[in-house]
């Protein structure tokens, strides 16, 4: 592996983040703070503790996960879509660089940004609610695995999209609804039995549940189920990207 191209892509993507700092970092932090105000303060005052955790603290992992998923997808998809849109992708495709190196550069940068964002949101949450992290290593593992996996998904979307509308389609119409319905703001025990069963088909539930377990030791599904689900999704994304590069799908005619 040649690290110079990986470093070049990674550095260029991180520089783009710095150029758009307001949009990249400040905006999600403000949004999250608003969630705390609305869900934590307004609704939380009407909901008692959930399995011994205050409602405000209970939603922290879900909020971080919501931002992590949407930002990972958004960062990675824009990262590869913009060169396609501007035409500068010719340089990437004509460079002596492997597909793996391209993915590491773009996905690595997108995941880094999301992880940093997740940690900033975590720190922000500390101003609103008392936080405890029961399993910090697991917390970091989930954070990294989720950021990488959804950055891979974003990379796929960036290659697939042939316009800005499609770039927004999946985050808005798929990721956000699945996150809201995946137990970010409630335990699925609070749902009627039929909805509990249906929610089990929502992959985001497993991510939120595992992540919340790493904070408070409580979860809707088992830790193994969460880890398995994210690893399966990771493998699926890698397979799709490998196919895209092999066939040149929407990259090379």
């Amino acid at each position: 592996m040649n690290l110079f191209p990986v470093r070049a892509i990674y550095a260029a993507e991180m520089a783009r983040t710095r150029r758009t700092l307001l949009q990249s970092i400040v905006s999600p932090v403000i949004s999250t703070s608003l969630y705390f105000v609305v869900f934590g303060a307004a609704i939380g005052s009407r909901i008692s503790e959930i399995e011994g955790v205050s409602y405000g603290a209970f939603i922290v992992p879900g909020l971080i996960m919501l931002m992590l998923l949407t930002q990972s997808v958004s960062n990675a998809s824009f990262g590869i879509f913009f060169p396609k849109f501007s035409g500068s992708i010719y340089e990437l495709l004509s460079a002596p660089i492997s597909h793996v190196e391209i993915v590491i550069g773009y996905v690595g940068a997108a995941a880094t940004k999301s992880i940093v964002l997740g940690l900033i949101i975590l720190a922000t949450a500390g101003f609103f609610v008392p936080l405890e992290i029961a399993h910090p290593l697991w917390m970091l593992t989930f954070l990294v695995l989720t950021a990488v996996t959804f950055s891979l998904l974003g990379f796929i979307i960036g290659i697939w999209a042939d316009g800005f509308d499609k770039l927004q389609l999946v985050p808005l119409l798929v990721i956000t609804p699945l996150t809201f319905l995946g137990g970010s703001f409630y335990s699925i025990d609070m749902l009627p039995p039929i909805w509990q069963t249906l929610t089990l088909f929502n992959p985001v539930l497993y991510l939120v549940s595992g992540f919340r377990w790493s904070f408070y030791g409580i979860s809707d599904v088992s830790l193994m189920a969460s880890v398995t689900m994210i690893l399966v999704f990771l493998a699926l994304c890698l397979a799709v990207i490998a196919w895209m590069f092999r066939t040149g799908y929407r990259l090379k005619p």
């Binding site: 191209p5 550095a11 260029a12 150029r19 060169p83 501007s86 990437l92 002596p96 660089i97």
Partner: peptide
């Protein structure tokens, strides 16, 4: 075809890195 918001120096340096130098 250029990255509109990059500087001349950065974009040329980027190309060198991309080609493994």
């Amino acid at each position: 075809t250029n990255e509109a918001f990059e500087t001349v120096w950065n974009t040329v340096s980027f190309s060198r890195g991309l080609f493994g130098k």
